[in-house]
Simulated assay, not measured.
Amino acid sequence: MNTFRTDGADGAGRPEMVDWDLAVRIGGRLAGDGPSVGRDEVSAIVDELRAGAARSTGLVREFTGLVAADADADAGAGAPVLVVDRASWVQANADAFATLLGPVVDKLTEKKAPSGLAAAVGSRITGAEVGGVLGFLGSKVLGQFDPFHEPAGRLLLVAPNIVHVEREIDADPHDFRLWVCLHEETHRVQFTAVPWMREHMFTQIQRFAETMEPGSLLEDGLSRVLDGLKNARSGGSLLDMVGTPEQKALLDGLTGVMSLLEGHADVVMDGVGPTVIPSVAKIRARFNERRKGVGVLDRLLRRVLGLDAKMAQYRDGAVFVRSVIDKAGMSGFNVVWEQAEHLPSRAEITDPDAWMARVLRT
């Protein structure tokens, strides 16, 4: 069997509270290699995905009116496009988590430095937990823009997962690959055209992480996952376990931003798709059905990990974007990118008129 060993992903520092090496090993094993593909076909798929991403840049910019803040961004110098296998995606996301949590871990260890045994046991427990999550997601994610990779982010396209899904839904491979590229390239365009978004999200995520107590990263880690499993059976997720008003407020803000970014990408896909992808209607219908999950375990894990909420972000965010564009035009909608204060709250995502009254004064 040939797998997609392509561009790879580099490493990052390893905070002691999480055994990142263990997380990567477990995540890589659980994710697996993906579908069997011939050597020549691997090379052709990788080339096609890179070309699809490059082609999508102009299509997305023309449709959205967003222009790169950095003249080099369109050429990929600022935020490169990488075609990766599942193991490389796992490594890249472990690196991203380590980057996000590094300063937080430093602060927590200053408050309550764990003993040698507690640190060793705790880091392996959390490493195994993170590895399990990354392993599950590593076999599902089609692409991802990582805004926190230095110097200006990077776009990852997970080739084996794209091939797996195009076969599963019986899509035209060339149409499906370009369709995926349109969505993921929209995220790259968002961040290269709105450079302050990266720092804003980094700050918000770190502020949320700083509200977590040391115990939640060490002694209580496994029990929280088990509680999440129990909660999921009654319709909840790990996100429902957020308790303090500060945590809820920060999570609401992050949810609003993520809903905006994901919904905007879906609108771009559906707006550009019919002009360049002949079978886009068939792809959208079959892909939406697939998003519901394919089995009992898959649906349970999606609920535990908050992926049902992720699907709601696509849906609600797209409704928000379409509503604003219908009433204010693309230029009116693009006011959302001017400053952080213009970003919609979680409540405004489901009430576009409230956002327009606050930001556009309409």
Rank of each mutant, 00 (worst) to 15 (best):
A53L: 01
A53G: 11
A54N: 13
R55Y: 14
S56W: 00
S56P: 10
T57W: 14
G58M: 09
G58F: 12
L59F: 01
L59H: 01
V60I: 10
E62F: 00
F63M: 08
F63I: 04
T64N: 06
T64G: 01
T64W: 04
G65W: 12
G65L: 12
L66A: 11
L66K: 07
A68L: 07
A68W: 03
A68Y: 05
A68N: 14
A68S: 15
A68E: 11
A68T: 04
A69N: 11
A69C: 10
A69M: 03
A69G: 13
D70T: 00
A71H: 12
D72G: 09
D72H: 09
D72T: 12
A73T: 06
D74M: 08
D74G: 15
D74P: 01
D74N: 11
A75L: 05
A75D: 12
A75R: 13
G76N: 03
G78I: 04
G78R: 13
A79N: 08
A79I: 07
A79Y: 04
P80E: 09
P80A: 14
P80M: 14
V81D: 00
V81G: 01
V81Q: 00
L82M: 03
L82F: 06
V83E: 05
V83R: 10
D85I: 06
D85W: 02
D85K: 03
R86E: 11
